[in-house]
């Protein structure tokens, strides 16, 4: 579903933000993308979403090259949940915002309403459909942002730091929701406990280079590997002094 082959990217042409990244991801997988600040996680997601296209190497989504020519088709297949929900939501009510994507793809009438309501139900906020966005809490905005993506029924969903700014209850709710979503999910996060609870495979990058990929449990329990890359064991696995 997602294929990267020797992908290299630089914003200014000098310093490589991503260097020689290659991996294949299959449909139905949930992938954790971890790494310290500035490792290149968000940049990688932006390339997959088609927001950055001046890269070297190859990036494919469902067999389509991610380039300017295929941009519309690639974007139809991918959904990107922003780190900052405020930037993702720009219309007056939840319903209008969730309907924005399907409408742009020509969906109207009953079909549109069904798609919107189905997306809202998946994130359990159907009762908020007429709520003005600016009157919602951070947790509700995050769920509404996810619903805006789900209503387009993408094959690949990219999450950029989805648990940032959420309280424990909202975070747990988000984990359950992510686990309930089908399709390929790629989650870039520092929240290793969340990665542990949601992802079956994990990719570790450091300073733009792929360090390792494999089973989430194997990577997230390797203290030496994580510390070498500027990370720590997930909190739930750290020994506590009582």
């Amino acid at each position: 579903m997602v294929e990267l082959d020797h992908l290299t990217f630089s914003y200014d042409g000098n310093r490589e933000v991503l260097s020689d990244i290659s991996f294949d991801l299959k449909a139905g997988e949930t992938i954790g993308l971890i790494g310290a600040n500035g490792a290149g996680k968000s940049t990688l997601l932006k390339i997959l979403a088609g927001l950055l296209t001046d890269y070297k190497g190859q990036a494919k989504i469902d067999g389509l090259d991610v380039n300017k020519k295929n941009l519309a088709a690639v974007r139809k297949k991918t959904g990107y949940v922003f780190q900052d929900s405020e930037s993702q939501l720009f219309l007056s009510t939840v319903y209008e915002d969730v309907a924005f994507g399907p409408r742009n793809y020509g969906c109207v009438g009953k079909e549109l309403e069904e798609k919107v309501m189905s997306a809202l139900k998946q994130v359990h906020i159907e009762e908020l459909k007429d709520r003005p966005i600016y009157r919602m809490s951070g947790g509700q905005k995050k769920l509404a942002a996810i619903a805006t993506i789900l209503s387009m029924e993408p094959e690949v969903i990219l999450f950029d730091e989805p648990s940032v700014g959420l309280d424990p209850k909202n975070r747990r709710n988000l984990i359950n929701i992510i686990n309930g979503i089908s399709g390929l999910k790629i989650i870039a996060s520092h929240d290793l406990d969340m990665i542990f609870d949601t992802c079956n495979r994990t990719i570790l990058i450091e300073k733009g280079k792929l360090i390792c990929e494999g089973e989430t449990e194997k990577i997230l329990t390797d203290q030496r590997l994580l510390e070498k890359s500027g990370l720590e064991l997930p909190l739930s696995m750290q020994k506590r002094d009582v």
Binding site: A49, G50, L51, A72, R75, K76, T78, G79, Y80, F82, S87, Q88, F90, F100, G101, N104, Y105, T148, M152
Partner: peptide
């Protein structure tokens, strides 16, 4: 970007 990613052209 959010508009573009949701099919706005």
């Amino acid at each position: 970007d959010s508009m573009l990613l949701r099919g706005y052209d």
